[in-house]
């Protein structure tokens, strides 16, 4: 079954007097349970593609299908519901809520989903242990290192077991040991829960874990290869 399908996506940004083609007739199909890395130099279009797949940004033309639903024509509310129910995001800049503790940040999405308090607590503690943050549950983002914050962000993204996880440079601020642990966790989730992962990165370590590597340049897909994951 197809988890994500993009058909002839175009997206142009205006920067000063120049039009920048962030997506230039991009078509791609990703199967459920896929583990895909989008690789591109800065400005290559990987984040724009990731945002289009997550319904965070609307393409100028083309179609985006997620979980067999066309999302590029959805309203803001429908997109929010789709993200809440199906998609987990990991951002490069952690993007945690500064006034909430690690555990509260992880619980936040579940609270919005309407998960009962006891279940929320159990799941959040379990996932924080899984990402190696046991004992740091009550710390706020400002009291944690970059790596710890990124792991909270990852825990938040995967705690409610979304079908699709979109990660933008998830290891950018992690040391190699933590990055490997994180990728191992992603791989395990991918294998055992059939979670689809799409990672935008230019980190070679991350690319080794991917089953499929899509290279982009100037908003176009220039290479799309299957590979043996690490």
């Amino acid at each position: 079954m197809t988890a994500v399908r993009c058909v002839d996506l175009c997206k142009t940004y205006r920067q000063g007097d120049q039009d920048i083609k962030a997506l230039d007739h991009v078509s791609v199909e990703i199967e459920e349970g896929g583990f895909v890395c989008l690789s591109a130099p800065s400005g290559g279009g990987k984040t724009t593609l990731l945002n289009a797949i997550g319904g965070l940004d609307i393409p100028d033309s083309g179609e985006v299908w997620v979980a067999e639903q066309r999302i590029d024509q959805m309203s803001k509310g429908e997109l929010a519901d789709l993200r809440l129910a199906n998609i987990g995001f990991v951002f490069q800049a952690y993007n945690l809520i500064p006034v909430l503790t690690a555990q509260e940040n992880v619980e936040f999405v579940m609270q919005v989903q309407g998960v009962p308090a006891t279940q929320r607590r159990e799941q959040s503690l379990a996932i924080l242990e899984e990402v190696g943050l046991q004992g740091l549950e009550d710390r706020r983002p400002a009291e944690m290192s970059g790596g710890q914050q990124q792991r909270v962000a990852v825990a938040r993204a995967i705690v409610s077991r979304p079908a699709l996880v979109l990660a933008d440079e998830p290891t950018a601020n992690l040391d190699s040991k933590t990055a490997d642990e994180l990728m191992a966790l992603f791989t395990e989730l991918n294998r055992h829960h059939n979670t689809t992962f799409i990672l935008a990165t230019h980190d070679q370590r991350v690319m080794r874990y991917a089953k499929r590597l899509i290279r982009m340049l100037d908003g176009r897909i220039v290479d799309d290869i299957e590979q043996d994951a690490a």
């Binding site: 997550g54 965070l56 803001k76 509310g77 929010a80 519901d81 789709l82 993200r83 809440l84 129910a85 998609i87 995001f89 951002f91 993007n95 945690l96 809520i97 500064p98 936040f108 999405v109 919005v112 989903q113 938040r156």
Partner: peptide, 15 residues
């Protein structure tokens, strides 16, 4: 910026 984050997590503008 923070509102952008929580919206990307699935929070509707109404909430």
């Amino acid at each position: 910026h923070e509102f952008g984050i929580v919206m990307s997590l699935g929070l509707k503008p109404g909430r």
